[in-house]
Design a protein around this nucleic acid. Sequence first.
DNA 1: TCTGGCACTCGGCGCATACGAGTGCCAGCT
DNA 2: AGCTGGCACTCGTATGCGCCGAGTGCCAGA
Lengths: 338, 338
Amino acid sequence: MLSERRLQVLRAIVQDYVGTEEPVGSKALTERHGLGVSPATVRNDMAALEEEGYIAQPHTSAGRIPTDKGYRLFVDKLAEVKPMTGPERRAIQNFLDGAVDLDDVVARTVRLLAQLTRQVAVVQYPSLTRSTVRHVELLPLAPARVMLVLITDTGRVEQRMIDCPAPFGETSLADLRARLNSRVAGRRFTDVPQLVEDLPEGFDVEDRGTVSTVLSTLLETLVEENEERLVIGGTANLTRFAHDFPLTIRPVLEALEEQVVLLRLLGEMQNPGMTVRIGHENAHEGLNSTSIVSVGYGSGGEAVAKLGVVGPTRMDYPGTMGAVRAVARYVGQILAES
Amino acid sequence: MLSERRLQVLRAIVQDYVGTEEPVGSKALTERHGLGVSPATVRNDMAALEEEGYIAQPHTSAGRIPTDKGYRLFVDKLAEVKPMTGPERRAIQNFLDGAVDLDDVVARTVRLLAQLTRQVAVVQYPSLTRSTVRHVELLPLAPARVMLVLITDTGRVEQRMIDCPAPFGETSLADLRARLNSRVAGRRFTDVPQLVEDLPEGFDVEDRGTVSTVLSTLLETLVEENEERLVIGGTANLTRFAHDFPLTIRPVLEALEEQVVLLRLLGEMQNPGMTVRIGHENAHEGLNSTSIVSVGYGSGGEAVAKLGVVGPTRMDYPGTMGAVRAVARYVGQILAES
DNA sequence: TCTGGCACTCGGCGCATACGAGTGCCAGCT
DNA sequence: AGCTGGCACTCGTATGCGCCGAGTGCCAGA
């Protein structure tokens, strides 16, 4: 177990390195932080920390930088989430309050998060899995063509075209719509399949094919849309690290465009509360020198999706975590209101 | 007026520079292209071209690179759009044919375009202005709450919540829906305002408030959605120019995130046919060292939106133009089919 | 009008040197 | 036992210098 002072040394190293982006030496440390001991002592502590793998030197005669393991310890034991200041809170609220619909909420959130953290922001659209059906609408477009519109309690709307196996009368359609809604309105998506299972049985034989088609399209929509969409923003912030980048920036941009990858990563993060994935903890290779801070958000107590930030491992964790948490909280409020 | 050979020299310079990304000298030119004259002659021509502002030297003792003006001349007079090869065409078609809905078409298009050109791709969602109404649906969500769903002929769906000033019966709603659709279905968006102007007059006095609210929401939707959305992709390709970049890449990323800027730029480009904006021809400062190749696309003969590519001025114009044109054509076909 | 020749320019590259921040270790002090 | 000051050592970076070669402009001659 590391002594209290060694932990403080680690904390100081992380803070300085994040601030200056340069390896930090023993002398600078004792000066900038009131450690009350001499550089030589700090050097001993550093040697011990390096031995344990919390820090490393890029070159033999350079200062130390934290390793992924060092950041991990910092985040777990040494850092406190930095709460937003009053003005910041108000700014967040003002910015989000102007949103007119779900798309706008998501778009504003991603911009806001990118601006607050000066990093790349990622916002997942509210999941359909946990939400409930508000309404299902069926619109006749042609004798054998129907449009299915699904409206969720989070305000999301999905539509699908359906080609019916046989012509389907307007009255039958109205009938189906009524029965369908009476069964699924207000219910959770996960419950829908068994709720509609025996629905075709109440219809004339010649209509059952169409009814089944409509139902299977509905179920498909639920499943397919389970593959969430997400929106990213603030990629220009990647260029702030132009020193080491060009090489690092490319795989990150590539990973960000592969939404599948990001979604999987977000999915892997434990659900309630904030998660921080540091460097190599990220399964995806291109993101090995970045950290991801994410948290679930939702309209009720339950998280329906995640949002977060992707940045260099050398990031201001307390500030970033504070911003992410605050934004998630306000987005949840907005969603609950609408 | 420039002599025929000087034009050929300019063409050769552009082609070589695009290929090698290095300033091209007189000797290399005569070797790589069968100009049939000596380097000294080419030097004279180069001096003349430089005099006219078509090429420039980065340093006194270096080769020449084309200026924006040089690229302009190349694109206007010296280059032919390079048609896609058969396999390329088939690949495009296969890739786009798998799309399931409009979102998917756009998403696939942007990916495809980025991959084909190895540059940043931009695709604008089909505009509502030129499209026609396929159907308007009104759904009662609560006694005084209605959801408006607008379906366009391009397959786009927009929805709006409406809080009615007074409760509104289901039968009145059905009545309104029927009358509304009989007037606007199949009509152009721009014609809608005058088509529904006198609609409230046919309703009971107590319902007119609600009818007006619904109508104004509909008109609002048309106008608001006139501010198009667009999708970009392939930003990772920006890092291919890491040499001079880091400095150049940042403003480009910033401009790309400012959708307003991009939309304005796309809007400025003349509508029918392909447009190429080179370097400083782009009004936006951050894009002064990039070129934009864009073209309108649409389901019918008429363009409903634009798509294109953003890349360095030093790009393969014939190839890029070929890819952009081909993709636009196929997207148009897909839209027409659905 | 084109060509070969020639002197000149200047950016890039390799190399050697100096500098300095930072380290590890050790002996001595408390 | 832990802390401190001192000291020799490492090594990455900055700097200066000289060479090389691609490329140019100009000029005289075909």
